[in-house]
Design a protein around this nucleic acid. Sequence first.
DNA 1: CCCGCAGGTCAAGTAACTTAACTAATATGA
DNA 2: TCATATTAGTTAAGTTACTTGACCTGCGGG
Lengths: 187, 187
Amino acid sequence: MNDSTLPIGVKLRHARKVKGLRLADLAKQVECSEGFLSKLENDKVKPSLQLLHRIVGVLGTSISALFIDNEQAVVARAGTRPVIQVSAFRPGEGVRLESLIPNSDGHLLYGAIHIVSPGGGSSGPITHEGEEVGFVLEGVLELKVDGEVYHLEQGDSFHFFSHLPHGYRNLGKVVTRILWVNTPPTF
Amino acid sequence: MNDSTLPIGVKLRHARKVKGLRLADLAKQVECSEGFLSKLENDKVKPSLQLLHRIVGVLGTSISALFIDNEQAVVARAGTRPVIQVSAFRPGEGVRLESLIPNSDGHLLYGAIHIVSPGGGSSGPITHEGEEVGFVLEGVLELKVDGEVYHLEQGDSFHFFSHLPHGYRNLGKVVTRILWVNTPPTF
DNA sequence: CCCGCAGGTCAAGTAACTTAACTAATATGA
DNA sequence: TCATATTAGTTAAGTTACTTGACCTGCGGG
């Protein structure tokens, strides 16, 4: 559909948002100025390789990941979707994300398959703007929304507003896969 | 499934966000101060009925909607979800919808499982605002988006902007089930 | 009549980003 | 060799959008 890669600023911003960092936080951690990061994320400036390396280090991504062509295909085949180790940038244990929508820039939707190993789950309850819907593809899931605990099995689905504190864990003995869609991706 | 209704501030904020308004915009339209709206959305203040009435008017909702307990079921169990015969409102043959989100009022998301019998599919290409993501739970699917034809199998996913003309058919010999989420359901 | 409170306004405060103006270090070229 | 240009940043002021606190105003009760 679209043959060009995204500007790296967009990817960097996305990576930062996923980590829940503000520009000021990131600036402090990578030891550079907030203003520079802002310009970087808006592609008004090119960083040195050294600085970029520190940034991607803190963000848990890699320089090469910033340059791969994550083109906007309509269809993503099973097995060929990019898998993200979540523990790298969200402190949940044993969760991988298989992204259905390559990048979330300019999108209203974000979709991914959460692959949760036994005992794994999201870390502390998170709350943000938006809305979520999900479907358990396989395995079992303990979902906690607004203090209430739900036990889901294969084929069950859920839906809630993201401002309710929520989190999940896999209490089963096998991997759980959840198809999870939320909006908006702009945190 | 929680017994209390959300604070009305939260609902008001949600309604405003859905309309894409800033506090300042809303304040102007309902002719009150921005600060008051902020406090209102943070439940630090109680509005008069007159003012509230103007607000919900602009937001396209109603006062009663702010008070009904619209905590919908967070979880829908496999097999217990309402199934809709699509031919009733979309002239596709042999498609049923199993709705994941009970009603679409006030939601940004709509989600359903499309159950397509062999030979069935959507009728002529449709186009509207929004964005869609889907995942083939079982069976095969011929998806046409913007003139391009894709053949999907179990586990494949797709994603596109709804303004591109799109349609689908089940060319296989068994039922196809697709988990389909789109936004926004209204507009 | 004065009290006190519900229902606001207004303007200052704040959070998070953006931008303009400047600088230091390196590179280029006459 | 020096003027100058470019690169890779910094600092602080500006902007946007929301929040907060101080104040105001009309109205019912004692």
